[in-house]
Amino acid sequence: MSVSPAEPRSVKPRTARPDLDPRGPRFGAAITAVLLLVVVFLSLTGASVAALLLLAGLAGLFAWGAFAGAGRHPYGIVFKKLVRPRLAPPAALENPAPPTFAQGVGLVVTLVGVVLGVAGIDPAVGVAAAAAFVAAFLNAVFDYCLGCQLYLLLLRAGALGGAGRAEAGR
């Protein structure tokens, strides 16, 4: 277990200890992006049932990451066991809250596709997979944190938590 160095100038107490290698979620996002691309392909070629089943499986994995935490995601375990020992130590560790929030975003998008697909709207499976692919691809290739952005936008819109609303009433 690494300990972050003391930062005497810090004026912001961190609620969660940073303990996640930031390359772990990117590794997972790369696998997810490839599988989402397969879903889009299956959906486009008319293999609706296979596309729906694979997307449901991916939604399950997103749910695992969102509820158990990004560090306990199956891909995260593969990363820890097989990939991380071959890499140099990370420049900095990360708070697991942001990637966990992003997993929740992925869960919502893929779940909408699965529900619409079960309801008989087959193209929705491909569309949801394509949307989730863009997010996973940006995460894996460009290290772009969609979860951070959405969190802040929701906070500004007053959609998250009572604290935001209380502050807005000042």
């Binding site: 912001k12 961190r14 609620t15 969660a16 940073p18 930031p22 420049a91 900095a92 560790l93 990360e94 708070n95 809250a97 942001p98 990637p99 929030f101 944190c145 979860g147 951070c148 969190y151 802040l152 906070l155």
Partner: peptide, 10 residues
């Protein structure tokens, strides 16, 4: 910064 921000600590 916010809590849910991967690049803020760096």
């Amino acid at each position: 910064s916010t809590d849910h921000c991967a690049r803020c600590p760096g």
